[in-house]
Amino acid sequence: MEVPILKQGGYLIASIQSALSDADLLSLRDELAYRVGRFRSRGVIVDVTALDVMDSFATRTMRSIAHMLKLRGAETVIVGIQPEVAFAMVQLGLTLEDVATALDLEEGLAYLNRGMKRENTGAR
């Protein structure tokens, strides 16, 4: 099950469409690392709205995606974690502490735009 990745301006948007196997999650990570370089993307949104479970493996992979892309010069935002999924993650003890999250795609884009703005003014 391949995850479609759209290029929108300087950003990449990966929209997970259905449940993913571990192998699918890892290929998403590798594909994003590759495309960030190829398109010189500065921000990546991973939309997990369609995921009905975020277990320890999915959480670990999201964190490793964010860390890896950071090293490639891009900011990552995870959007669309459903309330029930969030509750189950808390029960399990899983956190995304060092990874940016936003309610939905729109908020995720707003978050990345704010980051870019800060960077531009800071560079002056």
Binding site: V53, S56, V85, A88
Partner: peptide
């Protein structure tokens, strides 16, 4: 309930993993 289903699916995922 749907909240319980998510918890159950998460537990299954961890045990199967």
């Amino acid at each position: 309930s749907s909240g319980e289903l998510t918890l159950i699916a998460t537990a299954i995922s961890e045990l199967a993993r």
